[in-house]
Design a protein around this nucleic acid. Structure first.
Lengths: 345, 345
DNA sequence: TTGTACGCGTTATCAT
DNA sequence: ATGATAACGCGTACAA
């Protein structure tokens, strides 16, 4: 396997004209030949193909987009934290749908920083992406509106629009939580602790689902059982420990995300409590291998990415002139999964 | 917050000329004004800025790249499976370094399919990315060489080059494994099981590390203790169970990846064995909460993404004419982490 | 201080 | 069956 001399390292990409020069035809004929245009003589086509191959010619998609229209064949994907498996799986789902159309995903991570979000969104618009999927960092997204972005299609993911009209794909936070809490209530629990992260839309929704089920069951809300400021496992564990230390402790604990559920698990195990039911939003690896029974609200993050991508592609397909239809909202379903716990009994 | 009437949904992006028309100057003056060129009269600048704002003007980066040179400000990132936290964290690391330079990452997932890899690589080249980071799907990457890609800079990640000359960033598979196995040997273990996935470069390396330590310790390799075809937890659990059922079972088991380690854990627990040491490559969530002591080879996947991105940027910065230097290889370090197990004793 | 001409690589349109 | 021309949006070089 020796390097052919015709392909020096870092050659400037060759152009239609160069291929034409080599094949003894014009750039236009090359363009047509490579597109297999029937009007080009088969013999010419052959010559052109050979010349193109020898030169390692590859069509310049940027120049092509410029000439063809305003479509780059790229969609922007802006996420808050790609290291979070939720968002990376979502990204994969979106990429899957976008790739099916031969389009590409341009990725940006914002680290939940609104200023950074504005920058990357602007940059993506300047690169003329055909649309973007955004997991918004802030509570409000006026900067993503048709005004600021000249009508560039935007779909929100994971959080619904606020201060802007846009399609979105969100999880069934309320429904999923309601189902899990309803199970606890059906099992006879009346004192159910709720552990969640500090105010985020998603966590608020889950708290709302929790309260609504309690209300419907005629159970008074006890503020001491609601702890909503834990962002990591250690703080969640402390909060859970405090719940268990109450004079009238909960008989069940619900974690609004996996970190809170895991923290609760640690507290329960450490306190040596048995009979405290554990439940939570988010499935996680090894959830089936804990030493206590666990019921989780599970879902496929990829579904959200796919749904968001489909919403976006629909918008991109809309005739630019046409009056846009009402904003759409896709709610990604959740399902309840129960693990018996003590897997090896 | 009402929509300004000047920004209809899905307006065609405005151009320098349109802004100029509105401001009563030529396109050239607009270009200069927006770049804050000192030669433009402050008053003109002001008019231009207003006109640009009113029209929601945004520079067309694609047209700009076309005019300016052959650089798009984008790098391709081709991974086999973004749903795998390893690759998504790697992607985040790469994005971080690339974004620092004001460049963008174009993402593609190959699902470990070589044909798909060829397609996306070709597409990225056609989009004139400035370079690409590739986690190769196959054992051989001649199609990523300077010939096929006209010298477009390519950095391999996770696997070293084969059939091609290229920079790469890889994990210290051998070193990490050696360290873990050496600990087991130091603890007196002489029968150590090895569980790995079917032939992959990474797994072969880890097996090599395992064997080398045994050899140096004068321990004969026992083929029955090496099981290398488990790709998921259930099959790993079965393989581990078979090891434990041997007449002369291992006193320690090493998993070449987290799925194999978890499978081994399940088998150990299910068999009710105590005293079987567990170790493995890859850290994972809840590794600290298992019921047996566990020692893992840990590392930061983001390091690999960052290293690969830096290698790539260095290549991109090389003077295109300059003779390229020797290929570089960055080895991302690993570290040993021990969890006592039975966290709640 | 501002404008004109030209070209980046491609393709639609109109010749030949 | 093939070529010439123009234009996509921008920036360099030069002119005014």
């Amino acid at each position: 396997m020796t390097e052919p001399e015709t392909a020096p390292r870092r050659a400037a990409p060759s152009t239609l004209r160069e291929v034409g020069l080599r094949a003894g035809v014009s750039a236009m004929t090359v363009s047509r030949a490579l597109k297999d245009d029937p009007r080009v003589a088969p013999e010419t086509k052959q010559r052109v193909r050979e010349a193109a191959a020898e030169l390692g010619y590859r069509r310049n998609e940027m120049a092509r987009s410029l000439r063809m229209g305003r479509t780059s064949g790229m969609v922007g994907l802006v996420v808050t934290n790609l290291a979070n498996p939720f968002y990376s799986q979502m990204a994969l789902g979106a990429e899957e749908v976008v790739a099916e159309r031969g389009m590409k995903v341009v990725l940006s991570n914002t680290d939940d920083d609104e200023a950074r979000e504005r920058e990357v969104v602007d940059d993506l618009a300047a690169r003329r992406v055909d649309g973007m999927i955004v997991v918004p960092a802030g509570r409000e997204q006026a900067h993503l509106g048709p005004g600021p972005l000249s009508g560039l299609p935007v779909v929100l993911a994971a959080r619904p629009p606020s201060g802007v009209v846009a399609d979105c794909a969100v999880l069934d936070d309320v429904g999923g939580t309601r189902e899990a809490i309803a199970r606890l209530v059906a099992d006879g629990h009346r004192r159910i602790g709720f552990l969640g992260p500090s105010a985020t839309w998603t966590s608020d929704e889950r708290l709302r689902g929790y309260r609504s089920v309690l209300g419907e069951a005629g159970i008074a809300v006890d503020a001491r059982l609601e702890r909503c400021s834990q962002r990591d496992v250690p703080s969640a564990e402390r909060a859970a420990a405090e719940l268990l230390d109450l004079p009238d402790p909960p008989t069940a604990i619900f974690g609004a995300n996996s970190r809170n559920t895991i923290g609760a698990y640690r507290a329960i195990r450490r306190a040596g409590r048995t009979g405290v039911a554990l439940s939570g939003f988010d499935d996680f690896d090894l959830a089936d291998m804990l030493e206590v029974p666990l019921t989780v609200v599970a879902y496929d993050p990829g579904d959200m990415g796919r749904a968001a991508a489909r919403l976006l592609l629909d918008r991109i397909d809309e005739r630019p002139g046409a009056d846009s239809s009402e904003p759409r909202r896709v709610v990604v379903p959740t399902r309840i999964v129960s693990y018996p716990g003590g897997a090896f009994g």
